[in-house]
């Protein structure tokens, strides 16, 4: 278990969830002894979901490094993921505010429903923008929103402010996931740590695909994608999507969420953390990996 934990820690990651927890706590009585448990718990929840996701996706690499399931095996990954998840909840119980637990538990259930919906929606080309937005809300945005809100709650921040921080996190999370979905097309294999276009190949209909399908000609090509499609045909379809205006339109969509995040941020009390949150939000909009 120790080996697996070390392997996961060394695999790196952006650690944006704990960063949001710590920054949100700066809006209240910042006590690192209290807030650190929330920060660690949120990162562990994310880590556990990645360990499970690698079994789901049958992925051998994450960020260019072997996954737990490939270094050991699926069974080991399941036990490790469950252990890490339990550890995160144990840490969270150091926060004795029931509202914090209601928010987090609801987020975890919604996150899983989002993943189940993702499987349900695979290769379902008739889905609409609403389906996509609801899915990424559950899959990504809610946990980032919870990170911001729980950091604030753990620091005793008043309700009006912690709700705004949650909204900020939600908008940033939406923008973050849309950017991620764009990068899956535009990023190089080296930047992504996996081949480009992997989402569509797996049947995940993301925003660039939805925009590209507005063009009837492109749509007729995209709907040909299936699990066993040849790599040449897939590369051709990815190129078509990249050369359409779908990427640009998706990035504009992401920017709109980012603008909303910045608007909410403006309503928050001024402090150093607010400036850092703005910088992180802007970085998220421009990141390349």
């Amino acid at each position: 278990m120790q080996q697996a934990s070390l392997h996961l820690l060394q695999a790196g990651g952006k650690r944006i969830r704990p960063v949001f927890v710590l920054l949100a706590a700066k809006f209240g009585r910042y006590d690192i002894q209290v807030v650190k448990d929330v920060a660690v718990a949120l990162e562990l929840i994310h880590m556990a979901s990645l360990v499970h996701d690698d079994v789901i996706d049958d992925a051998d690499l994450r960020r260019g490094r072997p996954t737990i399931k490939s270094k050991w095996d699926n069974r080991f990954a399941m036990y490790s993921g469950d252990y890490i998840f339990a550890k995160s909840l144990e840490l969270m119980t150091n926060v004795e505010n029931p509202v914090a637990h209601q928010i987090l538990s609801n987020t975890i259930v919604e996150l899983t429903i989002g993943e189940i919906e993702q499987i349900k929606d695979k290769y379902r080309f008739e889905q609409n923008l609403r389906d996509y937005l609801l899915r990424i809300k559950r899959k990504t945005a809610l946990l980032i929103a919870a990170s911001c809100q729980l950091g604030a709650i753990a620091a005793g921040v008043e309700e009006e402010v912690h709700r705004k921080l949650a909204r900020f996190g939600y908008f940033v999370g939406m923008s973050f996931q849309i950017t991620d979905d764009v990068l899956d097309f535009t990023g190089t294999e080296k930047e992504l740590g996996k081949p480009a276009g992997g989402d569509l190949l797996q049947g995940n209909i993301t925003l660039p695909v939805l925009f590209a399908m507005k063009d009837e000609k492109l749509r007729s090509e995209i709907v040909k994608v299936h699990e066993n499609i040849g790599s040449d045909e897939m590369t051709h379809i990815i190129e078509l999507i990249k050369n359409s205006n779908a990427i640009e339109k998706s990035l504009e969509f992401s920017d709109r969420y980012l603008d909303k995040a910045l608007e909410v941020l403006d309503e928050l009390p001024n402090n150093k953390a607010k400036k850092t949150l703005r910088d992180i939000a802007l970085y998220i909009g421009k990141r390349k990996s």
């Binding site: 909840l89 004795e96 975890i108 189940i116 499987i119």
Partner: peptide
């Protein structure tokens, strides 16, 4: 297999949600 993994995660999420809704942190 994918759904089996997610089903397990879903059930353990429900345990947390039920107890959180009851304020039963202990």
């Amino acid at each position: 297999r994918q759904l089996t993994v997610l089903a397990g995660v879903y059930y353990s999420g429900l345990y947390y949600k039920i107890l959180a809704d009851q304020d039963n942190i202990e």
